[in-house]
Design a protein around this nucleic acid. Structure first.
Lengths: 357, 357
DNA sequence: TTGTAAGCGTTATCAT
DNA sequence: ATGATAACGCTTACAA
């Protein structure tokens, strides 16, 4: 095998000191794969251009001390080989950089993009980046895996997947979840629910229903019942639905049927979230039930969409700025190695009075 | 210096062949920094546990051939040092993995999360991940930089920032942008606009206005005018606004003032996007103008929110599934090294007739 | 101006 | 069961 031939074929082993001592079969395997699938490395470019790796680095990164001729030759070679620097290698040598993962159930709930936007902004201040995925639809676990493999920490609503061993090895900040394990940012509904119940009571609405999500009664539901009890009112009638627009629509229609009948004359409905509440508005409208005249509706979240619908949605708005800030700060603490337990923050809600209640 | 002593003190240099030949000051610097700021490496853990790196790897990754005792010792050491594997190093050795960046102007426009959700899903099928950022608000460039430094390719609306040298070095798929440079997925409004104009014409609406975004007349505007001309109608009156809910609201109110006056009796409005259209609906309502009786309103995008508002929004819906699929396929082509030029796809629109026109 | 050598932190392979 | 060594692809001294 002539030298010229070698250079042409075994691009990846040329100009590489290490390879001089590598076993023959290894070199052969590398060369074969390189031609077919493997992306070109800086060594391939160096070999093709007939220069050293460093010259390639300098040429491609616009560093000083490269002759124009050489530079052009290197650039040509790089282009010809479709060379792309391997980011993992770059980062390894350039030093640590933080990427945090943001995991949500459904990206189509505007609550999450708003939060993501805030997180991204705060993260950028620390030169971090945010990677986001939702878990809805099929193959949610695949998406979660793909994300977990790439991030240094996780923020989000993991739900039952929080137990996964994948997560347990990463610093994790749970949002609005059981405070038991690791860091959490809790949504504190107590104050908000008190205000909401007081408001309903004030306008004479005392037979409250809640459209909750399926499963165990949510913390929001328990808080509502607590506030009702404190106010001396009966616990809320519980209806369940998916936390989506369609879910709210269906739930409101089924509630409307109950309203027509004699039993359970509900005059106010609190919804698990705004998206659901907006759906409920639609459902009531469709059933010919007037809001707020016949039934008052209160959402939770404080989304912009509540301003847009008719009637405008009264809601318990979460302080998303504070939520994002706490989450980022907790991640920072975790990354510094502070204990995962007992790191917990609380974020309150504000009752935003609009037209639906 | 006794062996036991060395082990206890020079945690980071023990069991490390390389360091045996390293200069003294290097060792000292490492040891000093390690205590203060630098994250622990696998070598630190190995030294602390008194084992080799491989044993640490095995213990921490639940690989076979580690005695329970050793395993526990290693785990303890790792925990004590707050050890986290360096992902860059892991990825370097485990092989390439692709992360693509998705760049949008404003995450709060539901169009983007819907697209992102789709992209994430498709990406996961290839074991890719998606990292997303918006560019709105202050420090948009910082967020873009943070993202570009971490991804292997970019999909999105780069706007003027497409020229940045940062971008030019990455495979990029521009969405709905000038097809001149690199790969693009074009939104093809020609057919949709024809349908829209035909529909308006059919219901007797022939004095059309468009709420466009500021700057040059958009491609959407030009397409609309083309369709109007083809139908033998006058070009559209152009009003500009920010592509947001507020923008649409304000634009509709200003249009409404014109409607009251004698000149320019507009009877149909096409909006740059749905978010803006929904705002316009609100603006017209506020101004006492009935939709569609007084003025017909047509949006562009096909967002779910159009189903929710009153009246339900008639819109030109983009095929977002197809858009996402094309974008991913183009990225794949780019990553394979195919030529950046002439890689272009088109996605059509479908007129979704609801109540506003 | 260019090349040599060392090193980033991890995993895989092969010994022991 | 454990360890030594090479390797991943790149950059940054330091030499030449």
């Amino acid at each position: 095998m002539a030298t010229g031939e070698r250079r042409a074929r075994e691009t990846s082993s040329d100009a590489l000191g290490r390879d001089a001592t590598a076993p023959q079969e290894h070199r052969a395997a590398r060369a074969g794969a390189a031609a077919a699938t493997k992306p070109a490395t800086i060594n391939d470019v160096a070999a093709a251009a007939g220069v050293s790796r460093q010259t390639v680095t300098r040429a491609l990164n616009d560093l000083p001390d490269v002759s124009p001729t050489t530079k052009q030759r290197v650039q040509r070679a790089a282009a010809a080989l479709h060379y792309r620097p391997n980011r993992a290698a770059q980062r390894l040598v350039r030093g640590r950089d933080v990427t945090i993962g943001f995991v949500v159930n459904d990206l189509r709930n505007p609550y999450y993009p708003e939060l993501a936007s805030e997180l991204t902004r705060l993260a950028a201040e620390r030169d971090w980046a945010v990677m986001m995925t939702d878990l809805g639809g099929p193959h949610g676990d695949d998406r979660l895996d793909a994300l977990l493999r790439r991030v240094d920490a996780v923020i989000g609503h993991l739900g039952h997947r929080a137990d996964s061993h994948l997560t347990s090895s990463l610093p994790t900040v749970l949002l609005d979840d059981a405070p038991a394990r690791g860091a959490t940012v809790q949504l504190d509904f107590a104050g908000g629910m008190r205000d909401a119940v007081a408001h309903l009571d004030g306008i004479g609405r005392r037979r409250v229903a809640m459209i909750d999500i399926t499963g165990e009664p949510s913390a929001r539901m328990r808080m509502l019942d607590g506030a009702l009890r404190t106010a001396g009112l009966a616990p809320a009638l519980r209806v369940v639905a998916a936390p989506t627009h369609e879910g709210g629509l269906a739930a409101a229609e089924s509630l409307a049927r109950g309203l027509g009948a004699s039993g359970n004359p509900v005059d106010a409905v609190v919804c698990f979230n705004d998206l659901l509440a907006v759906g409920a508005l639609g459902g009531f409208a469709r059933a010919g039930i007037r809001v707020p005249a016949d039934v008052a509706v209160i959402g939770i979240d404080g989304l912009e969409i509540g301003e847009i619908v008719t009637p405008r949605l009264t809601t318990l708005a979460a302080d998303r700025r504070a939520l994002a800030r706490h989450a980022i700060e907790l991640v920072a603490a975790l990354l510094r190695g502070e204990a995962g337990e007992h790191l917990s923050r609380r974020v309150g809600h504000e009752l935003v009075l609009r037209d639906s209640a």
